[in-house]
């Protein structure tokens, strides 16, 4: 197997999927309020579609289902094991008929251009290694968004109490499994200025930004 950087993110989350999913029960309030505030206006004969990139156990796919009038939700994740946890959650909570799950990379979204009304891309971008790759992934979001579509993007940031540095940096943060095994996860911890700069370097344009609970958030649209 070729050990490209993104393989490690996939392998990591395949390994910790079950335990990780069990600790990710509730949707983030920032995602709930974003979803609740979106007006879906797709042409009559078109299906309106929302995408959760890095959907994990599907908790925010569920938020898209509950808080919007979207016709279809697509959950994208690099880890097949996490997608299985999303499949289970959606079955148990009655939204499996409205959910499609796709194993794919955030940097090369296999979705048609201008086909999506809402994108939720939270706590995922910071796992992509290299700035070039992260900016390319942001431009991929711009490509799939309809002209009046909106995306919510969040990354972990230096504003979190855990970090003492004020400039963005690469780091490894361990996930500890119940048996004590530590699994390393790559993160790029963003500083707010750098986050804005990466957004501006992509094909997205910024509608608003916010810092909340140690995360940088941006609402964006296609440029």
């Amino acid at each position: 197997m070729t050990d490209t950087p993104q393989d490690s993110v996939k392998a990591t989350y395949d390994t910790i999927a079950e335990h990780f999913a069990a600790t990710r029960e509730y949707a983030w309030p920032e995602v709930e309020s974003f979803c609740a505030s979106q007006q879906i206006q797709s042409p009559p004969d078109t299906e309106s579609i929302g995408v959760d990139i890095g959907c994990g156990n599907g908790r925010h796919a569920e938020t898209l289902f509950e808080q919007t009038s979207l016709d279809k939700i697509i959950g994208v994740d690099v880890s097949r094991e996490l997608l299985h946890t999303a499949q289970t959650r959606a079955t148990n909570r009655g939204f499996i008929d409205d959910l499609a799950l796709i194993q794919a990379d955030a940097g090369s979204l296999p979705l048609e251009s201008q086909s999506v009304s809402i994108v939720v891309y939270v706590a995922t971008l910071h796992h992509l290694r290299s700035r070039r790759r992260r900016v390319a992934s942001l431009s991929a979001v711009a490509r799939v968004l309809e002209s009046d579509g909106r995306a919510l993007i969040s990354v972990w940031s230096t504003e979190h109490d855990q970090f003492e540095r004020s400039n963005g940096f690469d780091t490894t943060i361990e996930w500890t499994l119940p048996d004590g095994t530590s699994i390393p996860r790559y993160y790029h911890i963003y500083d707010p200025v750098e986050f804005r700069s990466d957004l501006e370097s992509s094909a997205l344009s910024i509608v608003e930004t916010e810092i909340s609970s140690g995360n940088c958030y941006a609402v964006v649209e296609d440029n």
Binding site: T2, T4, Q6, D7, K10, V78, R80, L83, H84, Q87, L101, I102, Q103, A104, D105, S108, P110
Partner: peptide, 11 residues
């Protein structure tokens, strides 16, 4: 299992 794997070949 009903889930398409659309990862690029190198991943």
């Amino acid at each position: 299992d009903g889930i398409p794997n659309l990862l690029p070949p190198d991943m």
